[in-house]
């Protein structure tokens, strides 16, 4: 089963996402900040990253750039409480974005789509 890395500085979100995604059969790892995120990705080798945009010490959009520069095709789903982030063009390097909610249907659908995405020759 696919491995998902959840990067969020809110503990209850990490807990909720971990529980629900584990119930879906995913292997889940978590990170509570963007600190050394690339090293963490290198170590965990996730199939997909769920990334909070607004963390206390890190801007998720900058982290997205770092991830995309090193891992061209690693799926990243942005999570946010506000959709104003779309005004920043950096956001289009994400596979999808979801508005944070306690109903994770949308997030689960996007995870499924991102993991299903297939290009010949990869």
């Amino acid at each position: 089963m696919a491995k998902i890395l959840i990067v969020d500085d809110e503990e209850h979100i990490r807990f909720l996402y971990s529980e629900e995604l584990a119930d879906e059969g995913y292997e889940v790892a978590t990170a509570d900040s963007g600190f050394q995120l690339l090293e963490r990705i290198e170590k965990e080798k996730p199939d997909l990253v769920v990334l909070d945009i607004k963390m206390v010490d890190y801007n998720g959009l900058d982290l997205l750039q770092d991830i995309r520069n090193k891992y061209y095709d690693l799926p990243v789903i942005l999570c946010t409480a506000y959709d104003t982030f779309k005004e920043d063009m950096k956001s289009i390097a994400a596979d999808f974005y979801v508005i944070k909610s306690f109903d994770l249907t949308e997030l689960k659908n996007k995870i499924k789509m991102a993991l299903e995405t297939k290009l010949p020759g990869e």
């Binding site: 995309r68 095709d73 799926p75 950096k90 995405t117 010949p120």
Partner: peptide, 17 residues
């Protein structure tokens, strides 16, 4: 033969901020 095997789509890297 190529595009029939493509499912969904992927973003690209973005440069130049």
């Amino acid at each position: 033969g190529y595009w029939m095997r493509v499912k969904w789509s992927k973003p690209t890297s973005i440069y130049g901020f």
